[in-house]
Simulated scan of single mutants.
Amino acid sequence: MKIIFIGSVYFSKVMLEKLIDLKANVVGVITKKNSDFNSDFVDLSTISRVYNIPFLYTKNINNQETIYWIKKLKSDIIFCFGWSSLLKKDVLQICPMGVLGFHPALIPENRGRHPLIWSKILGLEKSGTTFFFMDKGADTGDILDQKEFKISFQDDAASLYEKMIVNSVDQLKFFLPKLISNSYSRIKQNKLGNTWRKRDQIDGLIDFRMTSESICNLVRGLSKPYFGAHCIYGDKEIKVWEVELSTCDLNNFEPGKVLEIINDNIKVKTSDSAILLTKHNFETIPSVGKYIK
């Protein structure tokens, strides 16, 4: 089974390396030279050069140059793991087995954008990883394999990313032989389920009128490898990378008020208690009694 691999993020790198480790017949790689969109961007050409796999840089996965390059390789299937734009009909129909895609959620629930981030911000207790055959919709094709993972309150973006990788590698080892031997099955999705929207900058704003737990989920969901949550102090946007729950019995204090400074840790009043900002980009630590928006 000849495979063309498409990807441009760290997850793509892990999966491509695993395919090579499993002796899969990867006949081509499509990737990007750079990306302003993905904070976890990886150029896969380095791996391609090491293993003498033909590769193509593209800015448009659906253009005629890319389509011609794919057709020329005469592969059986495309694996598209970690690509930020939808593949159109002309690409989806090239290979006899179609295009295998990936989504880090338990579709049909939670299709759409930023699934790891939204699952943490919303305080979900579980998510998962799904491999599916791509069609013209977004995350709507037949499911090949799906596996759940738990989300703890202490999880952040990095730990969820790692859970996603561990799940996915296990799944790849399970379903790759089935694809090769044509002994796999496809499970149609129902039309139920939701689709998450694209995040805006304001979705990363810490509003201290939120509960302390909600602020923890927001900050942890946007921590590295992503772009970070932020608050406003004066006229400056300040990144906040790590927080901890704290306590406060002063119910007559307004949210956003700085209650205490412990070394460089900033204790701030929230709607229901307090939060401790433990890793942040404040150049000047605000004084007790000041307000952070």
Rank of each mutant, 00 (worst) to 15 (best):
E162Y: 10
D135F: 07
Y184L: 01
D203K: 01
I151A: 06
S185D: 04
A138I: 15
E213G: 03
K136S: 15
N217S: 12
E213S: 14
P108A: 14
R199T: 10
Y226R: 01
K163N: 09
Y161K: 06
P177Q: 07
M134Y: 01
G123L: 10
D135W: 07
G228E: 05
A105E: 11
P108G: 14
E213Y: 04
D207C: 10
E109K: 14
T140C: 14
K198Y: 08
K224C: 01
L116A: 14
R220L: 03
L160T: 08
S214H: 09
G141V: 09
D145L: 14
F149T: 11
K224A: 09
S127D: 10
I121M: 15
D142I: 04
Q146M: 14
D156V: 00
K150G: 05
R199H: 03
K150S: 15
T130A: 13
K163P: 09
I202P: 00
D203C: 05
K173L: 10
V169G: 08
G137N: 05
L172Y: 06
S152W: 09
K178W: 07
S127V: 08
Q171E: 14
F131K: 04
E162V: 06
G193W: 03
D142T: 07
K126R: 13
G128Y: 11
L192T: 13
